[in-house]
Design a protein around this nucleic acid. Sequence first.
DNA 1: CTAGAGTCTCTTGCATGCAAGAGACTATTG
DNA 2: CAATAGTCTCTTGCATGCAAGAGACTCTAG
Lengths: 202, 202
Amino acid sequence: MDGSYSSDEIIPEQALAEAYGVSRTPIREALKQLENEGLVEIRARVGTFVRYPTRREVIELFQVKESLEGLAANLLAQRAPTEEIEKLQKNVQESFKVVDEDDGAAYARLVHEFHWTLVLGSKNQKLIENYDRLMNQLTYHRLVLETVSVPGRIKQSIHEHQAVVEAIIAQDPMGAELAMRNHVHASSRFVLYQPHTQTVGE
Amino acid sequence: MDGSYSSDEIIPEQALAEAYGVSRTPIREALKQLENEGLVEIRARVGTFVRYPTRREVIELFQVKESLEGLAANLLAQRAPTEEIEKLQKNVQESFKVVDEDDGAAYARLVHEFHWTLVLGSKNQKLIENYDRLMNQLTYHRLVLETVSVPGRIKQSIHEHQAVVEAIIAQDPMGAELAMRNHVHASSRFVLYQPHTQTVGE
DNA sequence: CTAGAGTCTCTTGCATGCAAGAGACTATTG
DNA sequence: CAATAGTCTCTTGCATGCAAGAGACTCTAG
């Protein structure tokens, strides 16, 4: 995930085993798990490779993301008022501030916090697990950093966040869900509009 | 999944290895994967056990199921007309027939076919993978068989299926999604209303 | 120079052996 | 009879060795 390996070079079990001071067995178990999550591809008797999602997969993942985050917003609105919601409010205020200061890194961090606060606030562990796996597959942090550069998108994005928070505070589950889905959908359009090097087309 | 092991007896790696004619290593990899999917629990140096979802987890899983199947219905409606939709239509007609004939087993099979046809028809591989994992965790077939015995539920359920199909045919994604979510929500209430031995309370 | 066959190396897949720890069982003591 | 300490067995965790296969490389022939 930190980019140590590119998709055309193999990840040798032996090297990882030596690096972590263990044998190949636990390394193999870990890689098998990563394969199961779709992050690496193990080709039998050839090697293990980093696997980047295709453009098609990114589209699919965003569709599922939209659905899951919509559910999370819905559930959180049902639980209103809670402390997570206060955190979201502060997050939106802070976001407006750092954008005025043109602090891209701080904004990326706040976006990350917003989405995770919302999902964790759903208090649905199964939803959280599914979301976590999904985000790992999206290698999301990379995409976010690419998107923040689109002019005008950031301010719009924060307003969308704000709309979500307002619906949650109003204890309007369906409104919150639709606002969140609208937001994810909009952000996915910007991510997919950008041509990037990592997510190669099918 | 076939009930060979109950939750209080260990699943010995050695026995499985001998049964399948392989060594413990590939058995361990498989069990590790099942643990990752939440189907078994591996307690270090104690043993591996079948893991049934708690009532709380069943509730959470149904919430996610509702969301994912809603998305599937939405996506399928966007693709209308397709052959999957014809299959759903025939499924509903067939369902009415077997219920009149009081054929519970055939109905359970048709329910299974309906939901999977819908999800597969979404043509979203990531959604399909998430749904598959989810259904494995629910050990769904067992729950379905328990629910068909609730009087009056079956006929109602088929009418809900019909409403979903009609919205899909009308190329109304949001209507299809809401109809599907309504159906899953209703069925979850019946499943959760029933006290069962497997899903122990938390 | 090019094409092809053969070999050789490096990879993962699996078998096996040993160690460590959890839990049950037993024996002993009050 | 009950409680406790000790041992013993059975489990998984991990290290290691070997085999099989994929792919690269080289050498030979045209």
